[in-house]
């Protein structure tokens, strides 16, 4: 440095002595450039950086939210699937039970109906038998009286006596037929 300074001094100018105009122009140039940087360039770049960071982070957050939502939906579907399977099983069981019950009911009803019909038939038969017995009693009495009167003639025309005889006869008949039925 010293060497250069001496040499330069010999030649009339030192490289270390500044030209003040150059110094001022440099400071002014730096100031102007700095003003532009602070006022326009830096805010624009910082804004872009911030916006980009936000966009990327926002995108990631959105993707995470979507992922979480999808997971929730999947979980829900699985849950629903399990539920619907259980439901189907339950319904099937119920239907089976109900079917069995209906069948049993129907059987019972049919049995009751058949019992009722049988009972009715019995009653009717009994009634008809009674009617037949009653009508037979009257008819047989008349026929027997007619027959007896024809056989014994007018002597037996007295109603009171003949009625008593007939009744006694029929009672005997009944008794014998009843004892015969009991024996049977």
């Amino acid at each position: 440095m010293l060497n250069a300074a001496i040499m330069a001094a010999e030649e009339g100018s030192s490289p270390l002595i500044p030209n003040l105009w150059e110094l001022l122009v440099t400071v002014a140039g730096f100031a102007v450039l700095m003003f532009i940087v602070i006022k326009y360039v830096m805010p624009a770049f910082e804004k872009t950086f911030a916006a980009r960071t936000e966009a990327i982070e926002g995108g990631i957050a959105k993707a995470e939210a979507a992922q979480a939502e999808a997971n929730a939906a999947l979980e829900e579907y699985k849950q629903q699937l399990v539920e619907s399977r259980t439901e189907a099983n339950r319904i099937r069981e119920e239907a089976r039970a109900e079917g069995a019950q209906i069948l049993a009911e129907l059987k019972e009803k049919a049995a009751a109906e058949s019992a009722r019909i049988t009972e009715q038939a019995h009653v009717q038969i009994e009634a008809e038998r009674q009617a037949a017995v009653v009508s037979l009693r009257a008819e047989v009495g008349t026929l027997a009286t007619d027959l007896a009167s024809r056989i014994v003639g007018e002597s037996l025309a007295d109603d009171a006596r003949s009625g008593r005889v007939i009744d006694r006869f029929l009672a005997d008949l009944e008794t014998s037929s009843q004892s015969a039925g009991a024996a049977k």
Partner: peptide
Amino acid sequence: GEYGVWFEGGFGKQMLMIIFSV
């Protein structure tokens, strides 16, 4: 502008280049 002078000299190439760079 010249070396070794204070306020002498004038608007040299170097100053013009500084402004140009800005």
